[in-house]
Write a protein that binds this DNA or RNA. Structure first.
Length: 561
RNA sequence: AGCCCCGUAGUGUAGUGGUCAACAUAAGAGACUCUGGAUCUCUAGUCAUCAGUUCGAAUCUGAUCGGGGCUGCCA
């Protein structure tokens, strides 16, 4: 994939280069991707996955897949499965190093005992509300808990009894003893263990106390001998705690480095909001193609390569930024243009009868499967008297710069003939059928006299076309930053037209040989893929993204005039 | 308000004291084309501001302004 002397040089790789030079970690590079199994992965996670696994590949290092499953109240086995599938689909390999934070619960507890024995932790009887009240504020220091000065022996006894299940949820916590006046709130005697009588997806009912993130995460990294622990910006203020714990216990200490999470226009990226959309049925599940989830994007037709490429092209930095959704679309088009086989399909069919073409005659024309890939070969497509073309490709009274079919005008029907429209048949004012003539001399689409036509349009033979449902997707929200709207619910900005279902579209016969998730291009329309709802009797197609459409842009400009 | 982080074309990144500040994308103009696709040209920046150091500053220093994060027994 990427070479070792990669030109990429973001600030993280710079740090790694320096660490390699100074031999800080004996020349090792070992990262990890640590999702919490409490939701589906999204494109923001993909950024982290590409960063962590990408760095490991570039430096000849390793990257672990580790589930940070320290909170049984929110986590589910289902998510573990889907996350594994997503990382694999994106094209990364953890080489068997699949770990769980819960694998280390015993060791984490032993370390907590060590910390307590050293007088660096205490058991607090205060409840959550009282702890919060005594924490102080951004400007005012906190107040010590009245239980802060218990003896190490008493704390140890209490901790053991917490573990043994003698206390109810919330009755007691283990807290680190740091500094209630610390300007960094995270250092004001943070909670290390809480009592939680909940069944864990991995450890079952073995535990009734569970470690907090700040305590657990550094230990997980340390145990796995991670060199560079990459996380998002909001953990910046946690780094002093991360370091503090590991220093107190006296174990191997990785370097935590924070980078900015990914934001995309016209969508939301928070797990909470995504969950709300899924559970509130605003979308059809985690893999709804309108969602920025990996599973949604997969179903929508995004290729793993396009997502990887996007992640590498947006770069890594510490500034909060919001990437244009259009850039992601550019990356899919870029990849699919090179890889997707072409077909012809008509989304809004308009019947065309070729007046001077014999009834019952069928000719086969050779079509190029992918002009960007000569190895993709060609295929035969049937031409006959009755055809369908795109309704948009005909206008009775066209504006300037409309090059397509219009009464009296000749255009090319791709790969077949030059065709002239003779008459538009109307019913109740609506054009329902076109009567056209071909020039028999232009067989194959070339005029012997060298005359040019302004446009080439796609078509399918009425007799050979098959029907399909096509699902068109638009942006999920109507505003660039739905999550950032003041005094408003992000759901108020849901786009009511984000999904449009087209019935009885007419597509090339060969589409029926495609399997779910197969990606392809309908010429002149966009990139599509077969949806998993496809059955023997019904083909369902998703539109991944339209082609760049300069005509649509022109129309928009004219409208604005 | 305390602490921490960050300000380079519309957007996302590069640039780490020395030619006209680079690349991508978007936008605009044009060329080419059997996809109005792809491809190819051209067009764009008060480097947040001010002051300093220096022969020379986007880069170093200071101040100011602006943006973000932090007060879960979430991660």
């Amino acid at each position: 994939m990427d070479s070792k002397n990669s030109v990429q040089k973001d600030f993280i790789r710079e740090i790694i280069n320096k660490d390699l030079k100074t031999d800080k970690y004996d020349g090792r590079v070992h990262t990890r991707f640590p999702p919490e199994p409490n939701g589906s992965l999204h494109i923001g996670h993909a950024k982290s996955i590409c960063l962590n696994f990408g760095i490991a590949q570039e430096y000849g290092g390793k990257c672990n897949l580790r589930f940070d499953d320290t909170n049984p109240a929110k986590e589910e086995k289902e998510y573990v499965k889907s996350i594994i599938e997503d990382v694999k689909w994106l094209g990364f390999d953890w080489e068997g190093r699949l770990f769980f934070a819960s694998d280390y619960f015993n060791q984490m507890y032993d370390y907590a005992v060590q910390l307590t024995k050293a007088g660096k932790a205490f058991v607090d009887d205060l409840n959550a509300k009282e702890i919060s009240e005594k924490r102080g504020t951004l400007t005012k220091p906190g107040i010590n808990s009245p239980y802060r000065d218990r003896s190490a022996e008493e704390n140890l006894d209490l901790l053991e009894r917490m573990k043994a299940g003698e206390f109810a949820d919330g009755e007691k916590v283990l807290r680190a003893k740091i500094d209630m006046a610390h300007p960094n709130l995270n250092m004001r005697d943070p909670v290390v263990y809480r009592v939680l009588h909940a069944s864990h997806h991995n450890t079952g009912d073995k535990w009734c106390i569970y470690p907090m993130y700040d305590w657990a995460h550094g230990l997980e990294d340390s145990i796995e001998r991670i060199t560079h622990s990459l996380c998002t910006l909001e953990f910046e203020n946690h780094r002093p705690l991360y370091d503090w714990f590991l220093i107190q216990i006296g174990v191997y200490r990785p370097q935590q480095i924070e980078f900015a999470r990914l934001n995309l226009t016209f969508t939301v990226m928070s797990k909470r909001m995504l969950l709300e959309l899924v559970e509130g049925k605003y979308v059809h599940g985690w893999d709804d193609p309108r969602l920025p989830t990996i599973s949604g994007m997969r179903r929508r037709g995004y290729s793993p390569a396009s997502i990887r490429n996007f992640c590498s092209r947006i770069g890594i930095a510490k500034v909060n930024s919001i990437v244009d959704f259009e850039f992601l679309e550019h990356c899919v088009r870029d990849d699919l243009n090179k890889t997707a086989p072409r077909f012809m399909g008509v989304l809004h069919p308009l019947k065309v009868v070729i007046e001077n073409y014999p009834e019952g005659k069928v000719e086969e024309f050779e079509a190029v499967n992918n002009p960007e890939d000569s190895k993709a070969g060609t295929r035969k497509i049937p031409f006959s008297k009755e055809l369908y073309i795109e309704r948009e490709d005909f206008m009775e009274d066209p504006p300037k710069k409309f090059y397509r079919l219009t009464p009296g005008r000749e255009v090319r029907f791709r790969y077949s003939y030059l065709v002239t429209c003779k008459e538009a048949i109307k019913k109740n004012g609506e054009v329902v059928e076109l009567i056209c003539n071909i020039d028999p001399e232009t067989r194959g689409g070339y005029a012997p006299d060298g005359r040019k036509v302004k446009s080439t349009i796609h078509w399918v033979s009425a007799a050979y076309a098959i029907d399909a449902d096509v699902r068109l997707y638009d942006r999920l929200f109507t505003v660039e930053d739905p999550a950032g709207q003041k005094d408003a619910d992000f759901k108020d900005f849901l786009n009511p037209d984000s999904l449009q279902i087209l019935k009885s579209c007419k597509v090339e016969t060969s589409i029926k040989d495609l399997k779910p998730l197969d990606r392809f291009q309908f010429e002149r329309l966009g990139y599509f893929c077969i949806d998993s709802d496809t059955t023997k009797d019904k083909i369902v197609i998703n539109r991944t993204v339209t082609l760049r459409d300069t005509w649509a842009k022109l129309q928009k400009q004219q409208m604005n005039k």
